[in-house]
Design a protein around this nucleic acid. Sequence first.
RNA 1: GGGCGAGUAGCUCAGUGGUAGGAGCAUCCCGUUCACAUCGGGAAGGUCAUAGGUUCGAAUCCUAUCUCGCCCACCA
Length: 724
Amino acid sequence: MPYDHSNVEGRIYEFWEKNGYFKPDFSKKGKPFSIIMPPPNANAPLHIGHAVFITIEDILIRFFRMQKRPVLWLPGFDHAGFETWYVFQKKIEKEGRDIFQENPQKIYDEIFKFTQKNRDISREQLKKVGASADWSREKFTLDKDIIEIVYQTFEKFYRDGLIYRGKRIINWCPYHKTSLSDLEVVYKEEEGWLWYIKYPFKQTIKTKNGQKIDHITVATTRPETMLGDRAVAVNPKDKRYKDFIGQKVILPILDREIPVIGDEAVDINFGTGAVKITPAHDPLDFEIAQRNNLGAIQVIGFDGKMTKEAGSDFEGLAVKEVRREIILKLKQLGLLEKKEIYKHSIGHCYKCNSIIQPQLSDQWFIKMEPLAKKAIEVIKKNKIKFYPAYQKNILLNWLSNIKDWNISRQIIWGIRIPVWYCQKQGSALCRKKNGIIISNKKPKECPYCKSKDLIAETDVFDTWFSSAQWPFATLMTSSQGGADFKKFYPTSVMETAYDILFFWVARMIMVDIYITGEIPFFDVYLHGLVRDKDRQKMSKSKGNVIDPLGVVDQYGADALRMALVFGTGVGRDIIISEEKIKSQRNFTNKIFNAGNFVLMNLGDNFDPKKINPKLTKEDKLILDKTKKVKAELKKDIKNYKFHEAAQKIYQFFWHQFCDKTIEDCKKRIYRAQNENEKDTPRFVLWTVLYESLKMLHPFMPFITEDIYQKLPSKPKDALIIEEW
RNA sequence: GGGCGAGUAGCUCAGUGGUAGGAGCAUCCCGUUCACAUCGGGAAGGUCAUAGGUUCGAAUCCUAUCUCGCCCACCA
């Protein structure tokens, strides 16, 4: 009879949960083992990637639970700021509504409900995969106590001078109307034009060797930004332009007088070696402008259209149109020298693919360098270990070139930045503080100048700012309060996908060290992305998505889990296919049948302790092999070599125990002349099955527990709390 | 421009100094009263990308090259 997981998995999960086996046992004396679950985004059902982390983390959790250590796996869900905003905006658009026209509070409430619904669905899905997490400690990133911690962190950073508000060039998505962090911009190589534009000198210049020069040529890919030009810059070392520095040119079309300046940042070899400076719409230009006190003119608005500053001819036009117009005018004026085909990379919003507009904007930033410095230190000292090890260098490299992090977002969904602005700024102190008051609730009056004219900051935090605090925030606020933090922080391992190494892992290390004074975790295990058998990323549009819940329904969670770790090296991408899942489903069937057969031959009252076995050479061999495999598995799991462990136990159980030992014992039992002769083979079967169930349990928890429950003389109430 | 990873059986991948290189799937042959056909027994299949080098010994270490994939970067 084939194994039917649908009769087993739900029932077994309920049994575990009902008996409180997922809760950490504080009375255990071993070294605490803890994992903070990477909180799934509460904006969609689970995908196969979630099944991966559940499987890996659950293997660790179940293994260490059996190692007699107090174990905590703390689950949670993420409000996932911008990600959820994106999902919800699309949902609303389908309903024919415009998210920017709706009442903000109403939208917030709607999204909140939406996430809570998704959270409930996702939780049930995680359980279906077998996650033995302590749901009584579940947290949400918008829980009041979590928000309170995020506020405190913000305030501490601000007080310590690590958070500042300032006008900087940020990545602006004109579709979402918000800034994005550097990590949220995807650069794509595109072919465009490099335009060479002549900027006439105010007065013709005579060089030392008597040449008369009436213009300087600049090269640009974005001619429309010339409307916001404040200067033309050349490298002071560039001999060609030596005499031009300090001269004035007339900006074509607008006929504005702008200077030629010298700045070392200009690349002599690019284009003509002379660059137009548009401080409001280019990061490098902004830097140069700051060094040279040039000021900035915003000519492209936050809606992607030209502003009033661009002049009446262009105001209100979209960027593309203006470009055309500008080129046309320059041609008419005879100031377009030439154009060249040019390949360069252009930033796009990682969600909606809109071209990112560099914009000068007032935003909140964190100074990253001091934080990165400490992180680099602990990583270099191997206080945090990485699996696979090469991720360490990737992270160190990123940390040592870090830039300040823009943590404010102009969306409604998220944790509001707890700031009020005094409009009056009626005292020297208030002006010194820029009228910034850190407070969650609206203060009665300005603490600096007693003005009552206060307005609220409407920006919310980048979701990763709160996620960065997740390890200590959850432990400090879980249902056990500070006890969990004391017992389980730093956590044992942070297990997540490698594509959020910078987004999340790096920031946790930096922020958590600063706030708690300790590293947030000892190990970082980064798993790969799930791909189909042609190595393609899974996506809905490609139609190659494997729905983990569908797989669980069809083949069982045990088969899915085993298929995800089988043959997947540490940190490598995970290739999954129906055939692979099927082969593991066959393995569950094998386990089921072997288990049944052994149980049948043992009888209900068999007790290995009452047997005095007369072991044959083969018996000794298999018992010895069992011990050996067990020791190897232990080592493999501790080293995160799940694929090795999975393959070993698969080989051992199927091709040693089933193919050899069971066959051997079967003959001995069937041929036995009396009951006593059955004792030794029964003893061997009982022992190897019992040990195998333990070894298999972290990988395939349901079927192993089900068999264990039927095992005569089982030492414990449940396999999940067995001792390895 | 900088960096990382990979190239091993038809396919997907383990193995990363030591007998004669493994697994799963697929293939071929044989086998169903006797736990399991979601099975059992057996077979076939590899110059370990290429070229040099280190070594008593290299798939494994070093150097170079090629091919694929990925990440980072302010090329105006």
